[in-house]
Write a protein that binds this DNA or RNA. Structure first.
Lengths: 332, 332
DNA sequence: ATGAAAGCGCTAACAG
DNA sequence: CTGTTAGCGCTTTCAT
């Protein structure tokens, strides 16, 4: 089923059919109807591959994220879709599973479809990836994180600063024996690592250091959070604050503490990261810091779509400011 | 940057370059290296648009789901990716937001890229969608639900049967004054509706009917579940069982009941749907029914990839059997 | 307002 | 093992 079939069925040249189907140029209403009717009755679906090859234009924007199960990314996607909606551009999702090698493959795969732009999480990529991105000739937007050296544009928060800020709030609230619980992903989950770095930096400035730490691998879950918290508190019962690398394990830890009848936030405080509204209905609200996910999605899409003040192709690095929420788990 | 550039840089014909880059046919190791080197140093990324047009082959599989934030779908995606991994096929995600109109657009958009197959949630689609799917000439797999009339293949569970089975378990446990709490999506969330239909059918068979019901619109969350539960129990304090259309609002309801000090599952029982392991660390385990999400993803991908016994293009309808888990919220 | 010709960058099919 | 020749189905550009 090709344009030619529609052309024959409607008795008009392929060119005119093409014009009707793309609503380009002047076509008399009569032929327009005739063509539309023919296309509809044949069930014609245009071949974008041929169209893209001929026009050298592809209405796709690649979006590369580490994981779909992280909850963080769906919200970013929402922001992206929202903005792309009325630009004629379509997002296409790729998943890297937190692996730079995998990410490199996905970037290669995506660029081979010659998209109109690429949005990808993080500013750390393999050498080869950076080279491809730099060569791509389309807008590249690195999102989530601005602590680094973006290839082109970037929209995100400073995770180092976020970690620092949380540490300052915790210290200000009077906690002193602070422990960390989080992902064990030395290179992959760089953003969690940067938060921890900023956190420890601020502790050091106050003459403190982490009293204990507990790492895990694999997905985050309430159960994981409970288990880690139990392990850590058994080992270091005198800890007075638990800083988690994300809200999910933080919430698990919170539930465990409440089960144990611990005095939260009096004797022990807790904090996570992300501002996952999903967890809002729990018995207590976990202290957290929102990562501006929706806004990151929106602004990155605007850059790709050339909707920003500077116009298309203008390089931009946008640092957003996360909001700290003390919830019910840090003394006020 | 085209094949031609690599051809010139390496002094070999375009055809040979093409062969090297696709590892097709015999090429001497010497030229192979020369070509690879040239391609690498130029930073050449093949143009799949041209390749696909020439070869009439596209290694993409469209996956159309209602929402990314539903938690249910990431797990399906995991199953799909897992299986497609070593087939050379790549999933491409599209989101319909539970709207048939939007779904129709996404189907059209996807088919216009001539993918190797399509996997989509549900068996209810617009007339135009069904027509396009029927015409597509590639494997189409409708997933999640088998209560209906699939266009081609299907993999899922019977939601009607699932609802029935849950009702039977609840009745068997001795609950009699049963209420329903769930999404108000008359046409869109058909699967929730079918579960409710099956549920009421089984109640009727036992001479019972729903004592009350509470609907909501918008996303599912713990907070939503709490609010609905409070509203319903204020209105009908004598209810002894709460059947929720999904685990998220069910968990919210459970937390509310526990806060109120209600005797769960003695005086009042609760059940949800989905088997969301995410919620596993809550104080009590909600009764639920797992929807075989991972397996649905895997099997649908196998069909698209032509990996099933019947070989490629064989139509199949696979009904999986969900597992009932009474958790801690149905008396035993 | 409509049509004809010439590719877009690659690969299938065949020759050597 | 390597090269040549034709397209793939559409859009661009230029006529008419």
């Amino acid at each position: 089923m090709t344009l030619r079939d529609v052309s024959e069925a409607s008795g008009v040249s392929e060119m005119t059919v093409s014009r009707v189907l793309r609503s380009r140029g002047d076509v008399s209403e009569a032929t327009r109807q005739r063509v539309l009717e023919a296309a509809r009755s044949l069930g014609y679906v245009p071949n974008k591959i041929a169209g893209a090859l001929a026009s050298q234009r592809v209405n796709l924007v690649g979006v590369i994220i580490p994981s779909l199960s992280n909850m963080v990314f769906p919200e970013v996607m929402t922001g992206i879709s929202e903005v792309l909606e009325d630009t004629g551009l379509q997002p296409v999702v790729g998943v890297s599973n937190y692996h730079h090698d995998r990410e490199e493959q996905v970037i290669y795969e995506m660029l081979s479809w010659r998209p109109s732009g690429l949005i990808l999480a993080g500013v750390e990529h393999s050498e080869a990836s950076r080279a491809m991105l730099a060569q791509a000739g389309v807008p590249i937007v690195e999102i989530m994180d601005v602590d680094g050296d973006p290839v082109d544009s970037a929209v995100g928060i400073s995770h180092r600063r976020a970690g620092r800020q949380m540490a300052e709030a915790i210290i200000a609230a009077g906690y002193r024996r602070i422990a960390f619980l989080g992902t064990h992903m030395p290179t992959q989950d760089t953003r969690a690592r940067k938060r921890l770095e900023g956190f420890e930096e601020a502790l050091a400035k106050a003459g403190l250091s982490l009293v204990d730490r507990e790492y895990y691998t694999g997905g985050s879950s309430l159960l994981q959070g409970r288990a880690m918290t139990e392990a850590l508190l058994k080992r270091s019962p005198d800890v007075d604050f638990l800083y988690y690398s994300n809200d999910m394990i933080g919430a698990g830890g919170l539930l465990w503490c409440l089960d144990q009848g611990l005095d939260v936030p009096g004797k022990i405080g807790l904090a996570g990261f992300n501002g996952m509204e999903l967890l809002d209905g729990l018995p207590r609200k976990l202290a957290t810091m929102d990562a501006c996910r929706l806004e990151i999605g929106q602004q990155s899409a605007e850059i790709v779509a050339g909707k920003r003040p500077g116009g298309a192709g203008a390089r931009e690095v946008i640092e957003l400011t996360p909001t700290l929420d003390l919830g019910d788990t840090i003394r006020k």
